[in-house]
């Protein structure tokens, strides 16, 4: 099993395609950082427009912490494509290349093969998120400094103390990793049905785009569906940045407004991962390899 995992990782990281994602993430982040560094003032002014007409914000809100949040908000919508690029290719790519039949005829069970492949795509996904964290969080912290984090939500604003932010990012990245592994599991599941990688990649993205639109639409008939869409739960990393207040309306440092929501969402995502991977194994075990 360990050999299989090593080999799968070796294959992933020997392919040029793998690095597209890392380059794309780096390019996007560095461009945003460059833009904000040069012209962050006007962007900050836009953000610092008075809130509610009665309050104004004093200080440098555009620090590394907020920039990371903005980037996560933007990027985590697109990272699924980069995850699908590899995960949805795990089986279909081998079928397409013709190497699947050779793999299957080796002395490993199909279950082991799939688990190793899924594990390898998970490692890839996690590394992509670590890369994202290094660039979006640590690089931003280095370039823009740290400080309190000011966040505007739709019906209130949140101010997090400087020393109350980093652990939230740790949680958010762990959660985002879980969300992206769910995407990987979906792509992986779809990849067992195809003999080319484009199909499953497009299918994975279509599912995510479709579900995300349903998640975003505020139409009552769809609202009932939302809790059942995994895309709704994928953005629960944001919950780490909402803080509880006490009766005196003081934010309680170190608290999370809806910890239960995070736990629920995480459970939903874990169940999806188990479902997708389990389904992949179940179907693939019985599949005749004709590629």
């Amino acid at each position: 099993m360990w050999t299989l995992i090593q080999i799968e990782l070796y294959k992933i990281f020997r392919r040029p395609r793998t690095y597209i994602a890392f380059i794309a993430v780096a390019a996007l982040i560095i461009i945003i950082q460059f833009g904000l560094k040069l012209d962050g003032k006007s962007y900050a002014d836009f953000l610092m427009k008075d809130i509610g007409g009665t309050m104004e914000i004093d200080g440098n809100i555009l620090n590394g912490y907020l920039i990371c949040y903005i980037m996560l908000q933007l990027l985590l919508v697109h990272v699924p494509l980069l995850v699908a690029l590899i995960a949805a290719d795990m089986i279909s790519g081998e079928a397409n290349m013709g190497t699947l039949r050779l793999l299957i005829s080796k002395p490993f069970s199909r279950t082991e093969l799939l688990l190793a492949k899924f594990f390898a795509s998970t490692v890839y996904t996690l590394l992509l998120l670590v890369w994202l964290a290094i660039l979006a969080l640590f690089l931003s912290m280095w370039i823009f400094g740290t400080g309190d984090m000011f966040l505007m939500k739709s019906s209130y604003v949140v101010l997090l103390s400087e020393n109350d932010v980093f652990w939230r990012y740790t949680g958010a990245f762990v959660f985002a990793a879980l969300a992206m592994v769910t995407v990987a599991a979906l792509g992986f599941f779809l990849s067992i049905f195809a003999e080319n990688s484009i199909g499953p990649i497009v299918a994975t993205m279509s599912v995510i785009v479709f579900f995300t639109i349903l998640s975003t639409l505020n139409i009552p008939i769809f609202n009932a569906l939302k809790p059942y869409l995994f895309t709704t739960h994928m953005i629960s990393w944001k919950e780490f940045f909402d803080i509880q207040v006490n009766d005196a309306n003081e934010a309680i440092v170190g608290s999370i407004q809806h910890p239960q929501k995070i736990v629920n969402s995480a459970l939903v995502l874990v169940l999806h991962i188990i479902g997708f991977v389990g389904g992949s194994i179940w179907i693939f075990k019985k599949k005749d390899v004709l590629s």
Binding site: Y10, R14, M97, G98, L102, S105, K106, F108
Partner: peptide, 30 residues
Amino acid sequence: LRNVGAVIEKPDVYKYLSAYENLELFARLS
């Protein structure tokens, strides 16, 4: 299967790897 070697239809291997790397990879898989 540990005792079987096969070429099934086209001899497809990993095109982005060298001959040596392919051979080593499949040896380990076997």
